[in-house]
Each structure stands twice: as structure tokens, then as C-alpha cells.
Design a protein around this nucleic acid. Structure first.
Lengths: 187, 187
DNA sequence: GTCTATATCAAGATAGAC
DNA sequence: GTCTATCTTGATATAGAC
């Protein structure tokens, strides 16, 4: 937040992401992070007193960037009732972006061990539903589409998706179609 | 498979599930499992030489039981084109069943650390899609519904679902409606 | 704000007796 | 097939110097 040590924090989080991408979620250790960030373990622990703090730092930045990505997509889209959820789908399911995926996997894994770490995400999710339904889409429809996007992303993050590129394209198109349909028909 | 030590294996897997339910995925240790199973660490290690083997045992049983649960639901349903996916939704999203959820969380977490552990699930998923589309449903539609179920389940497993009971009911109903619609209309 | 050094601890894995 | 005992490792966390 404009604090003078933000850049050190950022560098450390960059390094942590790098570690996760290169070595996997299971090798996210202070040692590995510190050496990549160009600081010692002690230096690292000044900024992030324990591992939970580091994970929280990673999560916060991920969430923040997700918001930014969505806002960017929204700005590119014409006004429509389904604009918000389409923007979400486009940014959330964007291909490439391997770093963010690996980091997601690491955070999901940590979340299973560390209940409470992911808690803020629950609140974010509720807000997403609010924004998406504001355009007139029924909650049920918005939820199904959004949950499908989550399912796809998590499967991909865990390398479990059985869908080929072309199938995936069609599946994402189906989500978009359901979004459009969900704002015009009434249930 | 009918081997005389199956019961010991089963007891150990029961114990492992218990540990995950009671203490959380992060406390799934040989010590905790052994003591609950009423064997020593050595005894446990005879059946499961390392942790990966234990996790694989847990996963295999979970997958097997999921198949059985789906078959049971299918048998209760009348013939229809969407029978397979409805059976899947009913058994997969069944409420209660906390043990299976906690175990899922543990396995997801382990999967992020241990690539390859969850690999068999990918194959299972492809087979599910085959069975579900055999009734005449388009792959895109089947995938969206199924992915939404995965998304919901994973959110719940990680305690991230923002939906109240009533909302959840309506969301699951929406999935069912999309399943019926997906077998009658053509896209 | 960053460093070195070290304490502490728990877990996975091994060896070999019974 | 099951046990005890032990080894090894690697990670978190602390204390205190610079």
C-alpha cells in the first residue's frame, strides 16, 4: 500500500510463485523462496513471520489480480445483462497463465491443511454472485455457470481435465450461451 | 480382492479416514493412523510401504464407492436419456457424507503435492463423460453440468461455498433442469 | 531491515527381532 | 504379519549480531 517495503514483499511473492511453478507446491520452503528472492531466511521472515503469512500474501495478490483481470475484460465488452459473468469467464478461464494456475494449486492444497486461509475467498465468491445477478440473471443460473468455471479450472490446475483444446472451447462456449440465455428467458 | 489381509487394509483405511475427519488433512500421519487402526507404525508400513501407497489406497476406495453410489441411484431412476447424469448428480452431491468430503479434501491437497496420485481420476472422468453422453446429451452440456457439480463439491469440501441450503437446492435443481433440456433440444 | 547460527521438532523411512 | 527401535531429513521458528 505505498509502503516503502512493498517492493521487497513483491519480490518475495514473485519468488514464491517461481518456486511453486518450478518445483511444485510441495517444495515451497523458506529456503527455496529466500534464495530466489535474493534474501536470507532471516530477511524473508522479517516480511512474512511464518508460512501462513506468506501464503496469505500470495493469496491476496492472486485475488487482487483476478479482480483486475475481470475489470479489464469487462471494459472490453459492450453493455449487456450478461456482461459481468462473461467478463468473469473470459478472465478466469483465460488460457496460458501457468504461473497463476500453479499458485492456485498450491493455495488449494494449503487450504485443505490450513482451514481459514481460504476463508476470504468465500466472501469474494458471494460478492461475485451479487455482481453477476445484478444484471438480471437468476442466481441458480449464474451459480451453475460460475461453478462450472471453477470445476474446469480446478481440474486443469490439478492436471485432471480430460478435455482436448477443441472440446474445451466448445464447453466454454456453452457456458457463454447459458449466460446469454439466462438473462433473456425467465425460469 | 478376497485376499486374507483385506480386512487389515480396510481397517487401516478406515482409520486414515477417521484421522482426516477428526484432525484434518494436515494431520494424516503414520502415527495417528496406526494408533487408530490398532497397529504399530511397522504394522501399518507392511500394508502401505509409504504414504503415497496409503493415499492411493484411500483414493481407490473412494472412487470405487462413488461408482457404487452412482449405480445405486441409477437403479432407482426410471429410464430416460438423462438418467446417467442425474444419477451422478444425486450420488455425487448427496448431502451428509462428511467423511467422504474430508477425505476428498485430503486427496486434493495431496494431489497438488504429488502429481500422478490423482491421474487415474482423469481417466474416470473421461469415462463418465462417455457414459453420460451415450444417452444423447451433447458433450458440452454434459460437461458444464458435471463441472458445475465438481465446482460445488470442491467449494463445499474446502468450506468455501457461500450458498445457503435453500439456494443450494435451487442450484442443484437447475443442474437437473439443464440435464433434461440437454437431451431434448438440439444445440 | 537484513543477516548468521542454531534450536526444535515431527515425519517418513529402514532394519531387524519375534 | 506385526512389532520396537532408530536413522535421516528437512522444515519451522528463535535469538541476537550487524
Amino acid at each position: 500500500m505505498g509502503h516503502h517495503s512493498d517492493s521487497a514483499r513483491e519480490r518475495i511473492i514473485d519468488a514464491a510463485e517461481q518456486v511453486v511453478v518450478d518445483l511444485g507446491a510441495g517444495h515451497l520452503t523458506f529456503d527455496a523462496v529466500a534464495s530466489r528472492a535474493g534474501v536470507s531466511r532471516g530477511g524473508l521472515l522479517y516480511h512474512f513471520p511464518d508460512k501462513e503469512a506468506l501464503l496469505k500474501g500470495m493469496l491476496d495478490r492472486l485475488v487482487e489480480r483476478a479482480s483486475e483481470g475481470r475489470a479489464r475484460k469487462r471494459a472490453e465488452l459492450p453493455e449487456s445483462m450478461e456482461r459481468e459473468i462473461v467478463a468473469h469467464l473470459l478472465s478466469y478461464l483465460e488460457e496460458g497463465d501457468w504461473a497463476r494456475r500453479a499458485v492456485s494449486a498450491a493455495l488449494i492444497a494449503s487450504g485443505a491443511h490450513n482451514p481459514g486461509l481460504l476463508a476470504p475467498v468465500k466472501e469474494k465468491y458471494r460478492k461475485l454472485m451479487d455482481e453477476v445477478t445484478r444484471g438480471g440473471m437468476r442466481l441458480e443460473r449464474a451459480a451453475v455457470i460460475s461453478l462450472a468455471a471453477d470445476g474446469l479450472r480446478i481440474l486443469e490446475v490439478l492436471s485432471l481435465s480430460p478435455f482436448e483444446q477443441e472440446e474445451r472451447r466448445r464447453i466454454v462456449d456453452e457456458m457463454m450461451a447459458l449466460a446469454r440465455e439466462g438473462t433473456t428467458e425467465d425460469g
